[in-house]
C-alpha cells in the first residue's frame, strides 16, 4: 500500500521552520521512509513569512512541486494566522497544528473557516521551560509527529536522541532540554484527547 503524507510549514524567517522540516525529513528517513524536505525561497530576511514542505512516503517520491493540498499544516508563528491563508488547500481529514497558548476551541471561534481538526501547542512555554530559550521548532516537530502518527513515538524519541547527540556533542545539557521539550509536547497532546 502506498501512503504519501504531505506537510506544509508556516513560519517566519529565523524561527527554524525550515530546520524543523529538515529535521522531520531526517527522522522519517531514519525510520526507513522516502522523504523530501525543502524550503520555498523568497527574499531572505528575518521575520518575513516563509514556507517549508515535507513529503514522506513508503514509495519513491518523484514530484518536485510545492504542496497545495497538504495533509497537515504546522504554524510556527501564531501571528501568521492573521496575514497568511495557512489553512488553504488543507485536506478535510487533515489537521492544523498551531503554536499558541490558546485552545483549539478559541482558534476555531476566531477562524471558523478551518474545516479540519485543530491542535494547539504552547511551544513558547514548553521551549522556555525546558531549554530556557524560545526555540519553537523542537516542540512543533514533536507535535506534528504526534498528530500525524507518521512514526512510533518511542522510535521517534530514540532517533531524535541520536540526532541531538550528534548535533550537540559539545553541549550535553542542550540534548536533555531538547528531549524534554519533545516529551512534554507528546504528553500535552495526549492530555488533549
Amino acid at each position: 500500500m502506498s501512503k504519501l503524507t504531505e506537510i506544509r510549514w508556516h513560519g517566519r524567517g529565523g524561527q527554524g521552520a525550515k530546520t524543523a522540516a529538515l529535521l522531520l525529513a531526517d527522522v522519517a528517513f531514519s525510520t526507513g521512509m522516502y522523504v523530501q524536505g525543502f524550503p520555498e525561497y523568497g527574499p531572505e530576511r528575518m521575520g518575513a513569512p516563509i514556507t517549508a514542505y515535507n513529503r514522506i512516503s513508503e514509495d519513491k517520491i518523484r514530484v518536485h512541486s510545492n504542496i497545495y493540498e497538504p495533509n497537515y499544516v504546522v504554524v510556527v508563528d501564531e501571528s501568521l494566522l492573521e496575514s497568511v491563508p495557512v489553512a488553504k488547500g488543507l485536506k478535510k481529514d487533515g489537521a492544523i497544528i498551531i503554536n499558541t497558548a490558546k485552545t483549539p476551541e478559541e482558534i476555531k471561534s476566531n477562524y471558523p473557516n478551518y474545516d479540519c481538526r485543530i491542535y494547539t501547542i504552547d511551544a513558547k512555554e514548553i521551549s522556555e521551560s525546558t531549554l530556557g530559550k524560545y526555540f519553537p521548532n523542537t516542540p512543533m516537530l514533536a507535535a506534528v509527529v504526534k498528530v500525524s502518527k507518521l512514526m512510533d513515538e518511542n522510535r521517534f524519541l530514540e532517533e531524535m536522541k541520536h540526532s541531538f547527540e550528534h548535533k550537540f556533542a559539545a553541549k550535553p545539557n542542550v540534548i536533555e532540554g531538547n528531549m524534554n521539550a519533545l516529551i512534554m509536547t507528546l504528553r500535552r497532546l495526549d492530555d488533549d484527547k
Partner: peptide, 12 residues
C-alpha cells in the same frame, strides 16, 4: 540541476 528545487531539497 535545478536550483533550490533539487539543490536545496533533502531527499533519499
Amino acid at each position: 540541476q535545478d536550483g533550490f528545487i533539487t539543490s536545496h531539497a533533502v531527499e533519499n
